[in-house]
């Protein structure tokens, strides 16, 4: 069985968010976001659709500067750092985008070798890179599809291929945006096991956006719950603990898969 690690066994903070405010133009998405992620833990970002989870990831992976606040990797505030420093921090990221974001003209193998090629793994030969890519594709059970193009495979397979690509550079930080959305329950469970195994093996810090209840209970050491109505986080802690102790009706409804009291919307 997979033991849930509390995240408190390693005290070291891998990344910290301070007073973050996110907005698109004048439209406020979320504010007052504060949290720390312990090194080697699996941190779950929860919340209803459109509350800003993907946007939060974009602020963390250096794609979009926040309206205000800090994203601290170690001592460094990413958005206040020099470009060289930003590049250095980003080199340790592996990202699985919500829409997979595979390069559509490249085969799966080429997609996975791409980060190795682009990030100056000059020591490695093409053959070595290809072997490594095949190894990774094997790990996500895609060895039969390694020479196919992204539009020749299913959505779930794309997710797994994108995960393989995210792992190509042995990242210290793994950002996964809805990794199991669109997967059948068995594949989803396998993916959870894979994430846990990876974390244990590589000691990577994993941030996951997910709606899958079984998944977030199984893998989450810690987490934050963003609320679209109040535009702030409304709960903080491991999903299992939140289920037992959090009194916020929306969080309870979400984690118990119920319609909250007084919700008349059809969303």
């Amino acid at each position: 069985m997979n033991d849930i690690k509390t995240g408190s066994e390693t005290k070291e903070t891998a990344v910290e968010i301070k007073d973050l405010r996110m907005s698109y133009g004048k439209k406020l998405i979320q504010e007052n976001i504060n949290f720390q992620v312990a090194k080697g833990s699996i941190f779950i970002i929860m919340g209803g659709s459109g509350c800003g989870k993907s946007t939060l990831l974009k602020h963390m992976i250096g794609l979009l500067p926040p309206a205000a606040g800090q994203v601290l990797y170690g001592e460094t505030d990413y958005w206040a750092a020099e470009v060289e420093k930003q590049d250095e921090i980003r080199r340790h990221f592996g990202v699985l985008f919500q829409g997979s974001a595979l390069f559509s003209t490249l085969t799966l193998t080429e997609n996975v070798t791409m980060p190795m090629k682009l990030n100056g793994d000059a020591k490695k030969s093409d053959a070595e890179r290809r072997d490594r890519a095949h190894e990774l594709l094997d790990m996500v059970s895609l060895s039969h599809a390694k020479d196919l193009l992204p539009n020749e495979i299913s959505g779930g397979m794309k997710k797994r291929a994108a995960l393989a690509r995210a792992l190509a550079l042995d990242p210290e930080f793994l950002f996964l945006d809805e990794p199991s959305a669109g997967l059948d329950p068995i594949s989803s469970r396998k993916l959870d096991d894979l994430i846990l195994e990876l974390r244990d093996r590589t000691r990577a810090t994993v941030l996951v956006v997910t709606h899958e209840l079984p998944s977030l209970f199984a893998i989450g050491d810690d987490g934050i719950f963003l609320d679209a109505q109040s535009k702030q986080p409304i709960a903080r802690g491991a999903p299992k603990a939140l289920l037992e102790t959090c009194e916020h009706p929306f969080v309870q409804a979400f984690l118990n898969r119920e319609v909250p009291d007084g919700d008349e919307s059809n969303e």
């Binding site: 250096g62 794609l63 990202v95 559509s104």
Partner: peptide, 17 residues
């Protein structure tokens, strides 16, 4: 534009390109 919509452009950026 298709690459932009597929987040492929974002993926390039996170690879430091």
């Amino acid at each position: 534009a298709t690459m932009q919509g597929n987040e492929e452009v974002d993926a390039l950026k996170t690879m430091g390109v």
